[in-house]
Amino acid sequence: MYLRIWEYEVAPDAVERFTVAYAADGDWARLFARSEGFLGTELFRDTDTGVRFATIDRWRDEADWVAFLRRWEEAYRALDRSLAPLTRGQALLLQGTSPGR
């Protein structure tokens, strides 16, 4: 399994819209689901701040992620641009597989 883990700081007035867009059935998941090998996404909210979130996107393997991006890069970039105003910052924390795989 190939994972991509992101961290976000969300504008306080955008938390509701963010949680809808980044949820397991949200905008990102629907886009990813267009491609074979997408296994799902999870959204986590920091209980201390309420505006810090993490997502975990799961793919069967890295080749499936690369194939998705090659096929859907324009839609991926457009969605990223449209949702950018919801966040104050974001960082890719990890992309990879379990050791030994």
Rank of each mutant, 00 (worst) to 15 (best):
Y2Q: 06
L3Y: 13
R4L: 10
R4C: 09
R4Y: 06
R4K: 12
R4G: 08
W6A: 03
W6V: 08
W6M: 13
Y8L: 01
V10A: 00
V10D: 00
P12G: 04
A14C: 08
A14L: 02
V15E: 00
V15T: 06
E16N: 04
E16A: 14
T19G: 02
T19I: 06
V20G: 03
A21T: 01
A21S: 08
A23K: 03
A24I: 04
D25H: 06
D25A: 07
G26W: 00
D27E: 14
W28I: 02
A29F: 06
L31E: 00
L31F: 01
L31S: 01
A33L: 05
R34P: 03
S35C: 08
S35A: 15
S35L: 04
S35K: 05
S35I: 05
G37K: 01
G37V: 04
G37W: 02
F38C: 04
L39H: 05
G40Q: 07
E42D: 15
E42Y: 11
L43F: 07
L43V: 06
R45S: 11
R45L: 10
D46W: 03
T47Q: 14
T47A: 14
D48V: 15
D48A: 15
T49S: 13
V51H: 10
V51N: 13
R52Y: 02
F53Q: 00
D57T: 13
D57F: 04
R58M: 05
R60V: 10
D61P: 01
E62V: 07
A63F: 07
A63V: 10
D64Q: 15
D64C: 15
W65T: 02
W65Y: 12
W65F: 14
V66Q: 11
V66N: 12
A67I: 05
A67D: 08
F68V: 02
F68L: 04
L69Q: 07
L69F: 12
L69N: 10
R70S: 11
R71H: 09
R71G: 03
W72A: 04
W72D: 11
W72Q: 12
E73R: 14
E73K: 08
E74T: 12
A75K: 08
Y76S: 06
A78H: 08
A78F: 05
A78Y: 05
A78C: 06
L79C: 03
L79A: 04
D80G: 13
D80T: 13
R81M: 10
R81V: 08
R81N: 10
S82F: 00
L83H: 01
L83S: 03
A84Q: 11
A84V: 10
L86Q: 01
L86G: 00
T87F: 12
T87M: 14
R88P: 07
G89H: 07
G89S: 13
Q90T: 13
L92K: 10
L92W: 06
L93Q: 13
L93T: 09
L94E: 09
Q95P: 06
G96M: 05
T97K: 14
S98H: 15
S98Y: 13
R101N: 15
R101I: 12
